[in-house]
């Protein structure tokens, strides 16, 4: 379990996270939702252990900053693409923490082959990673994270810049991780999609956590409407799925 207590993150004299406290349960999909600048990506980096912070942010009592013992996979919003690397080589990088850098094991090779199959990348295995479309690249990133066999995966806006068809395909791929008991923490703009897939939501704004809880509760709570200045409406579809629709500004 991740427990944050009075967690603050200050960068270039700017307060990115302002003394926040929350808890994230193991084996569930938690989605950080909020507008740009809310501090979602910074919080993900802090959880990754790559950003220094004040206060406490710990998994099972171990502070996150600098820790690399816990196997945490990271899927960035805009990945740095290694020029000339094939999809197979790129996905295999995910094995580095387990097999060792530059090493390949027969178990690792089998796992990567399976993952390429699950993520529909088999035909693209020899393709250069730099030549993939947005949706394919996102699948390759998730495949690399799957190859890492992580205890936890952090995904920064995994569906941004994708059309709806690819959004669903990517989110379904992320769900593959959940079936393996991996703790998933993602950021997302789209609160409807977030509520559809994630178990829990953390609503953030201006470096603060406004609201946390199970998706089904958070999405229907009056605090959520207040957080969006009463400019959203939540409808429930016949399937029971909630849909959040923003209200247009009424000009007077």
């Amino acid at each position: 379990m991740i427990i944050a207590k009075d967690l603050s993150l200050i960068k270039d004299d700017r307060t990115i996270l302002d003394s926040i406290s929350f808890a994230i349960a193991d084996g569930r999909w938690t989605c950080l939702v909020g507008p740009n600048g809310a501090g979602k990506t910074s919080l993900l980096r802090a959880i990754l252990g790559n950003a220094p912070y004040e206060g406490s942010l710990a998994i099972d009592g171990i502070q996150r900053f600098g820790d690399q013992k816990i196997n945490v996979a990271y899927v960035p919003q805009i990945p740095t693409i290694p020029q000339g690397m094939s999809v197979w080589e790129y996905v295999y990088l995910g094995r580095a923490k387990i097999d060792g850098w530059g090493r390949q094991s027969s178990k690792g090779q089998t796992i990567v082959e399976d993952i390429l199959d699950q993520t529909n990348l088999v035909k693209l295995r020899k393709q250069h990673i730099s030549r993939l479309s947005g949706g394919e690249l996102q699948r390759a990133l998730i495949a690399r994270a799957l190859a890492q066999e992580p205890e936890m995966i952090l995904l920064d806006e995994p569906t941004s810049a994708l059309d709806l068809h690819h959004q669903i395909s990517v989110l379904d791929n992320i769900e593959l991780l959940k079936t393996r008991g991996v703790t998933i923490i993602s950021t997302m703009h789209d609160i409807t999609l977030a509520a559809m897939y994630a178990d829990d939501l953390v609503i953030m704004q201006d470096g603060q956590v406004l609201l946390t809880g199970a998706s089904s509760e958070v999405i229907h709570s009056p605090e959520l409407k207040r957080a969006f200045e009463n400019r959203i409406n939540v409808f429930t579809l016949d399937s029971g799925r909630p849909v959040v629709i923003a209200e247009k500004n009424q000009r007077t």
């Binding site: 252990g49 790559n50 990945p79 020029q83 090493r103």
Partner: peptide, 17 residues
């Protein structure tokens, strides 16, 4: 062998140990 990690972003490299 580890230099391949520097071809990724720092966050990705960190996550890979």
């Amino acid at each position: 062998k580890k230099l391949d990690g520097l071809m990724l972003s720092d966050e990705e490299a960190h996550s890979l140990g």
